[in-house]
């Protein structure tokens, strides 16, 4: 599936490196990345393709949560269909 990964937290060195390394290890392909600083918070969004992922979505979530815990970030993964259905008529 196509998914959006959001990463929110205090800006620091190595956030993108940590997340993208883990995604590569899991066989998740990154299609697009954008980032911005919102109210002093680092906010990154990644559009990814999980079709050739070596792990289940549940496992991927757990792995990202582990990074989130280590680096004090909130990392979430959502199916892209969610945004399409909510914001497109």
């Amino acid at each position: 599936m196509k998914a959006i990964i959001t990463v929110v937290g205090k800006d620091k060195v190595g956030i993108i490196a940590a997340v993208s390394t883990r995604l590569a290890e899991c066989g998740v392909n990154i299609l697009d990345i954008s980032q911005t600083i919102m109210q002093d918070n680092f906010t990154m969004m990644m559009s990814v393709d999980t079709d050739r992922s070596s792990v289940s979505i549940k496992e991927l979530k757990a792995q990202l949560a582990e990074i989130g815990k280590r680096m004090a970030l909130i990392i979430n993964i959502y199916n892209e269909e969610l945004f399409d259905s909510m914001h497109r008529v």
Binding site: M38, M86, H87
Partner: peptide, 15 residues
């Protein structure tokens, strides 16, 4: 990927 929409949805679920 529309940043505003992603952030809005994320806020709805998280907060």
């Amino acid at each position: 990927m529309n940043q505003r929409e992603v952030i809005e949805t994320m806020k709805m679920i998280q907060e």
